[in-house]
Simulated assay, not measured.
Amino acid sequence: MQIDLIHFTPWASLAGGALIGLSAGLLILLGARIAGIAGIIGGLVQGAADRQWRYLFVLGILLSPLVWQLFAPLPALQMVSNPLGLVIAGLLVGIGTRYANGCTSGHGICGLSRFSVRSLAAVLSFMSAGFATVFVIKHVL
C-alpha cells in the first residue's frame, strides 16, 4: 500500500474531525441533542416542534465550506459516478439509515462516544458493507 502524499492532508483532516467532535459535544452538552444528521433533517421534514436549532445546525453545515475558504482553498470537486449511480447510492444510504435508526454521524460519532452497543453494531455493519462495496466495485467488476 502506498500513501498518495500529494493528496495526504493529515492536518486538515485532524482539524475537521476536531470540529465535528466539538460541535457534536456542544450540541449534546448545551442542547441535550444527538448530532445525527439523518435525525436532524428527518425532524425538519416531519415538522418537529423544535425546528429552530435544526435549521441552524443544517445552516452551519452548509456555510462551513465558506468559512473554510477563509483559511485554505477548497479541494477540487470530482464526480466519480454517473447521476444514476448517485441516485441509487443515495436511496441505499437513506434506506440503511432508516433500518439502523440513525446515520454515520449519529451512530459513529455520538453513539460510539457514549459506548452504545447498538451504535457499535450499526457502525460495524455499515463499515463492513462499505468495505465490501468498494472491493467489489474496484476489484471484481
Rank of each mutant, 00 (worst) to 15 (best):
74 L>G: 10
66 L>P: 00
82 N>C: 07
118 R>W: 04
105 S>Q: 04
80 V>F: 05
24 A>Y: 04
141 L>F: 03
17 G>Q: 03
13 S>P: 01
64 S>N: 03
54 R>E: 14
117 V>F: 15
136 V>P: 00
83 P>T: 05
2 Q>K: 12
132 A>M: 05
116 S>Y: 02
16 G>F: 14
98 R>L: 14
98 R>Q: 10
11 W>P: 11
5 L>G: 08
95 I>L: 14
79 M>G: 07
133 T>Y: 02
32 A>L: 03
110 C>T: 03
9 T>K: 04
83 P>K: 01
137 I>M: 05
69 Q>P: 06
79 M>P: 00
51 R>L: 12
40 I>K: 06
42 G>T: 14
13 S>M: 05
17 G>M: 04
122 A>M: 04
73 P>H: 01
36 G>H: 04
46 Q>F: 12
68 W>K: 03
85 G>C: 06
66 L>W: 08
52 Q>T: 14
1 M>F: 09
136 V>M: 10
119 S>E: 05
77 L>A: 15
2 Q>N: 12
70 L>M: 08
16 G>P: 01
78 Q>I: 15
72 A>L: 06
34 I>R: 10
130 G>K: 00
115 F>M: 13
49 A>E: 09
114 R>A: 11
16 G>R: 01
82 N>T: 11
7 H>A: 15
34 I>G: 11
117 V>M: 13
86 L>I: 11
120 L>D: 04
10 P>E: 03
28 I>Q: 10
48 A>Y: 06
73 P>L: 11
109 I>S: 08
10 P>G: 09
61 I>F: 14
49 A>H: 14
98 R>F: 07
65 P>Q: 05
10 P>D: 09
56 L>Q: 14
21 G>Q: 01
87 V>S: 07
18 A>I: 06
136 V>N: 00
62 L>A: 15
103 C>Y: 00
33 R>A: 13
138 K>C: 14
122 A>W: 06
128 S>K: 00
101 N>S: 14
26 L>E: 08
57 F>S: 12
79 M>V: 09
89 A>L: 02
49 A>M: 04
132 A>Y: 01
16 G>V: 07
137 I>D: 02
35 A>K: 00
97 T>E: 09
117 V>Q: 12
76 A>R: 00
67 V>T: 15
78 Q>G: 02
89 A>W: 00
140 V>A: 05
43 G>D: 03
51 R>G: 14
3 I>A: 12
101 N>D: 11
58 V>E: 11
82 N>V: 06
55 Y>K: 13
18 A>N: 03
43 G>F: 09
133 T>W: 07
100 A>H: 01
98 R>W: 11
72 A>V: 13
74 L>C: 12
131 F>V: 15
112 L>Y: 04
70 L>A: 10
95 I>F: 14
39 G>E: 02
129 A>H: 00
50 D>R: 13
61 I>L: 15
87 V>G: 12
115 F>L: 10
12 A>H: 08
125 S>G: 06
52 Q>F: 09
74 L>Y: 04
139 H>E: 06
40 I>H: 02
19 L>Y: 11
36 G>A: 12
118 R>A: 12
138 K>A: 15
58 V>S: 13
39 G>C: 05
121 A>H: 04
10 P>I: 01
6 I>C: 10
136 V>R: 00
45 V>A: 12
103 C>A: 09
79 M>R: 05
92 L>W: 04
111 G>H: 03
56 L>G: 15
76 A>K: 01
90 G>R: 09
